[in-house]
Design a protein around this nucleic acid. Sequence first.
DNA 1: CCAAAAGTGTTCCGGATACACCCATGC
DNA 2: GCATGGGTGTATCCGGAACACTTTTGG
Lengths: 267, 267
Amino acid sequence: MRDSASRCLSRLRSRRVPAASFRFRGFRLRIENVVDINTRTGQAGHEVLAAVLQVRQGSLQVLLWQRALAPHSGRWSLPGGRLCADEDVEASIRRQLAEKVDVRQLAHVEQLAVFSAPDRVPGERVVATAFLGLVPCDNDPELPNDTSWYPVEALPDTAFDHEAIVLRARNRLRAKLSYTNLGFALAAPEFTVSALRELYSAALGYRVSATNLQRVLSRRGLLEPTGHTAPPGPSGGRPAALFRFTAGGILVTDPFAVLRPPGSARA
Amino acid sequence: MRDSASRCLSRLRSRRVPAASFRFRGFRLRIENVVDINTRTGQAGHEVLAAVLQVRQGSLQVLLWQRALAPHSGRWSLPGGRLCADEDVEASIRRQLAEKVDVRQLAHVEQLAVFSAPDRVPGERVVATAFLGLVPCDNDPELPNDTSWYPVEALPDTAFDHEAIVLRARNRLRAKLSYTNLGFALAAPEFTVSALRELYSAALGYRVSATNLQRVLSRRGLLEPTGHTAPPGPSGGRPAALFRFTAGGILVTDPFAVLRPPGSARA
DNA sequence: CCAAAAGTGTTCCGGATACACCCATGC
DNA sequence: GCATGGGTGTATCCGGAACACTTTTGG
């Protein structure tokens, strides 16, 4: 009985039906307006959404899927879905992204913020926890038909408040590229400095000098040479040395912008 | 009828009773296990919590209230409560804090993160959006009997995951003092540089030099003299000039730690 | 005059940028 | 040799830290 009641509730919540009923000990029990009761008691659905970013063809792009059904049919929205009972928000977004992107391809996932305007989606009230996800540039996941990459600077018609989430993700990435080693999550395991320069330029939106990039990252101990070299291009040129990031996880390298504790030389 | 049903639901949800019933057209309807159904459908309660910080008596302190009832009776927890239907999370935390602190005394409120471990609180699953709140040091709000300030470095027995939230709030404040003007939310409208130094020292946990503090904040255009002076102490000394922050809201003053756009002198 | 507290001048240093120069390869 | 792309050496700049010194008050 409990299962059929659950089914009723979830059909009602997804607004597929106006009311639902089920049988119980000979009675036919009809449920309606469960949404309304939930709303009155402050009960709200919770979803997780991710802006998954990758540098593709020289620009920072985000993974979107096109809605086939109302509301906002035809518009593009972020991957994600309902939070389930036995998972926290990060486990939830990783599970839901697994349908779009192989989990191993997600080099970094972090919380952005909660989006909770009461009318952010039509119908039942839904609070969203938004995430930033990063995919290294050497991956090209197989995507479902309704899903594709779009440049962050040229988004299609987006659904709900998803554009704001994408912009928030881009800004977070840009900030953290400066004071952490987050570049590791955009780059392949081995890369040339000029390839890395392309990634940083695309993500930051301005030209980054390869010279200074290498210097800054090396000085901080984030970069180490692998000993290998990449072959030169068709027009010649010195073969480029290959590097890798020394750490696999995120590290804050520049914690004190100013007002550092006495005696601490910067990093 | 809907109202009595709502009341039943909310009594059940708060775990005050194991079951509740109400009358409807001559029938006595009994509700139980509503929590269980909600859990199975992924429905979760949502609460907002704030670590409200203030520098008091030379140390960074946080506002806590002592739980009188189970669960975690006697332990100290953060102010907050359920998200209501017509408000977003920030409006909600401001409303709930108004019962403890006059809203005008809250100089700054910002989201920290979502805490969502399925077992973070016993009973019904509750997802929490955590906030940082800051109260300038010239306010001393009247507090309810069960509520008081505790130094962040010497917390009492805390409930649930609230200690982690307090530490997260402290770390956020420390970081933002470095690269924003967030000091305005700790300071009185007018202050001497040495008073400001005390605030920064307490918040950061290490001795800050008044000389450099004034220099850094002035160079960034965050501080301006009011023209007034404070009288010297009983043992004499030169009277201190009074300053104020030029901006009332938060400003990021040091956006690029490194890899700044070409040609941009820092700030 | 002396002590105390506030404020300023000066030096030093490290990290980041900018740019010139050297290196290794294909043609 | 020469064009092309990669890597390094070096000068410069700027902001912050440290510390000495001056200023203004009370006793």
